[in-house]
Amino acid sequence: MTDKNKEKEFTDLLLQHQAIVYKVCLLYAQDKEDLADLYQETVYNLWKSYRTFENRSSFGTWVYRIALNTCITDLRRRKRHEYVPLRLTDTDLTDDDPQDEMLNDLYSLIRRLNKLDRMYIVLWLDGKTYEEIADIIGTNRNQVAVRLHRIKEKLKTMSNL
């Protein structure tokens, strides 16, 4: 495959999966500029790694893995605190719809979780099965089930405060 065809193939796949990249970056960003930087860095890392992508997992699974690793690496590099407030209104995601307000509240609670718990819950909220989550994270199904149960309980407790 020529470089031009490889670039077109990558661009087409990225367009199909850009929401994954955006969602993951949104949960780890501090503000709009940070979100843009994380998104750009993730796309760069995807492109850099695309030549070695071997189709052993789905492209979406691979995108999740790269996006999560990029965001977590960025957190470590900047030595940020575990809790980083981000107002969704800064990202122009929602209107004044009551359902959007509930979504804002949920994202606010998720951002208060530690970086690993955020990783689990964002995959679960995106409809991934426990097996898919285990594959993306590199663990087993039982650990995913236990971890998600604890995270859900933690979110319930946090929402009642």
Score class of each variant (00 low, 15 high):
Met1Leu: 11
Asp3Ile: 08
Glu9Cys: 07
Phe10Arg: 01
Asp12Arg: 10
Leu14Lys: 00
Leu15Gln: 11
Gln16Glu: 05
Gln16Ile: 00
Gln18Thr: 11
Ala19Gly: 09
Val21Ile: 12
Tyr28Asn: 02
Gln30Tyr: 15
Gln30Ile: 10
Lys32Val: 01
Asp37Glu: 14
Asp37Cys: 14
Leu38Pro: 00
Gln40Pro: 06
Gln40Trp: 13
Glu41Gly: 01
Val43Gly: 02
Tyr44Ile: 06
Asn45Arg: 08
Lys48Val: 11
Ser49Asn: 12
Tyr50Phe: 15
Arg51Ser: 15
Thr52Ala: 14
Glu54Asn: 14
Arg56Phe: 09
Ser57Arg: 03
Ser57Met: 09
Ser57Asp: 09
Gly60Gln: 09
Thr61His: 15
Trp62Gly: 02
Val63Arg: 05
Ile66Leu: 12
Leu68Tyr: 05
Ile72Gln: 15
Ile72Pro: 09
Thr73Tyr: 10
Thr73Ile: 03
Asp74Pro: 00
Arg76Gln: 09
Arg76Asp: 07
Arg80Leu: 13
His81Thr: 10
Glu82Phe: 15
Pro85Met: 08
Leu88Pro: 07
Asp92Cys: 09
Leu93Gly: 02
Asp95Val: 06
Gln99Ile: 11
Gln99Cys: 06
Met102His: 05
Leu103Trp: 11
Asn104Tyr: 06
Leu106Ser: 02
Tyr107Asn: 05
Tyr107Met: 08
Leu109Gly: 07
Ile110Asp: 03
Arg111His: 14
Asn114Ser: 08
Lys115Tyr: 14
Asp117Val: 01
Asp117Ala: 09
Asp117His: 11
Arg118His: 04
Met119Lys: 01
Glu132Tyr: 07
Glu132Trp: 09
Ile133Ser: 09
Asn140Gln: 12
Asn142Cys: 08
Asn142Thr: 07
Gln143Met: 11
Val144Pro: 11
Val146Asp: 08
Lys156Arg: 10
Ser159His: 10
